[in-house]
Each structure stands twice: as C-alpha cells, then as structure tokens.
Simulated scan of single mutants.
Amino acid sequence: MRGQGQVRIIGIDPGLRRTGWGVIESDGVRLAYVASGCITSTADEDLAYRLRELFEGLTSVIAAWGAAEAAVEETFVNDNARATLKLGQARGMALLAPAMRGLRIAEYSPNLIKKSVVGAGHAEKQQVQAMIGFLLPKARFESADEADALAIAICHASHRGAAALARRVSEGAAE
C-alpha cells in the first residue's frame, strides 16, 4: 500500500516493435520498483493494427498498476526518415494511452534520462542498467526496452518536483 506523498510513475520507452514500460513508486527521496515489461506488436500486421496493439497494451498496464504520472522518452531523429516517422507514431500511442486515463505526462530527452540516472548524458546502456540495479535493487528486467523505461521513470521521479514548481510559478504569473 502506498504511503502519503508517494506517487506511482510509469516510464514508457516507445517503439513500434517493442514498447518498454516500467512502474516505480517515489516519495521524493526513495524509489521502489513495482513492475516492468514489454509490449510487442505483431510484425506482419498493418501499421494501424500494430499501433492499436501498443495503445491497448499500454492502457491495460496503466490500469493494472495504477500509475498516477507518466514519462515518455522524446524521439531522436535519425537518418532514416521512414523509421523516424514510424517511431513517432508509436510515440503518439505512448502519449495518448496515459492522456486518455488523465495522467500527468512529462517528456525527456535520451541525454537527460542518462544524465539523471548515471550522471553522464552519453552513458552506455550497460552503465544505465547497472545504476538501475543500484537504485532499484528489486528490479528484474529482461530487455533493454524495460531497462530504458525504468530509467525514464527514475528521471521523472528526480525532475517532477522542479516541473511542478515551474507550473505553479507560471500559473501564478498568468493570473
């Protein structure tokens, strides 16, 4: 059972083939692993149906684990425009699923995620996974997609207080 001040966060690492997800709890100081996994889409299915699989999978995960906030990795643009576009569409499902459940959603760049977890924006995947093991000793992940999703959730846990303060300041300035 969650204590007062604890928030359950889902980190989402979007991908058309595999979308990683990781759920943690944070009380502002301590982090606790809750669950993680990977949603896969059927490779030989049409794009629209693959996107539906991702959306429905994420919607189920969010409902099952009771996440209150979501964090999604921003898309990096690569040389293959077609691949970038497909990733963007998968990312759209990763944003829509928590939005449809009313969760507060934050987005983070890959470099900020690595810097938040490891202390270096260009850290290797092995370094990120080692730090996840240190920060969430009970975490058990079977894929890099799950590990990345947990890193995204950890990043959000460390930045959510600053984001909330910025929102309050901007809302006060708007009055």
Rank of each mutant, 00 (worst) to 15 (best):
M1Y: 02
M1V: 04
R2S: 11
G3D: 00
Q4E: 11
V7Y: 00
R8N: 00
R8G: 00
R8L: 06
G11Y: 03
G15S: 09
G15R: 02
R17C: 05
R18K: 13
R18H: 14
R18N: 15
G20Q: 05
G20R: 00
I24Q: 02
V29D: 08
V29Y: 07
V29I: 11
A32G: 14
A32F: 03
Y33K: 00
A35L: 01
S36Y: 00
G37T: 09
C38G: 00
C38T: 15
I39T: 09
T40Y: 00
T40Q: 13
S41G: 13
A43V: 12
E45H: 11
L47E: 06
A48D: 12
A48F: 14
Y49G: 10
L51Y: 08
E53G: 06
T59E: 13
S60F: 04
S60K: 14
S60P: 00
I62N: 03
W65D: 07
W65K: 11
G66P: 00
G66Y: 01
E69Y: 05
A70Q: 04
A71W: 01
E74I: 08
F76C: 03
D79A: 15
A81L: 14
A83P: 03
L85E: 02
K86P: 03
Q89P: 05
Q89Y: 07
M93N: 03
P98I: 06
A99H: 10
R101L: 13
L103D: 07
L103K: 01
R104F: 09
R104L: 10
S109H: 11
N111D: 05
N111A: 14
K114S: 08
K115S: 11
S116T: 12
G119T: 10
G119Q: 01
A120S: 12
G121S: 10
H122F: 10
K125N: 09
K125E: 08
A130H: 14
M131L: 13
G133D: 09
F134C: 13
L135A: 12
L136M: 07
A139N: 02
D145E: 14
D145V: 02
D145Y: 06
E146L: 08
E146Q: 15
L150K: 04
I154C: 06
S158Y: 12
H159C: 11
A163R: 13
A163K: 11
A164V: 09
A166Y: 07
R167K: 14
R168Y: 02
R168D: 15
S170F: 06
E171T: 10
G172R: 11
A173Y: 11
E175V: 15
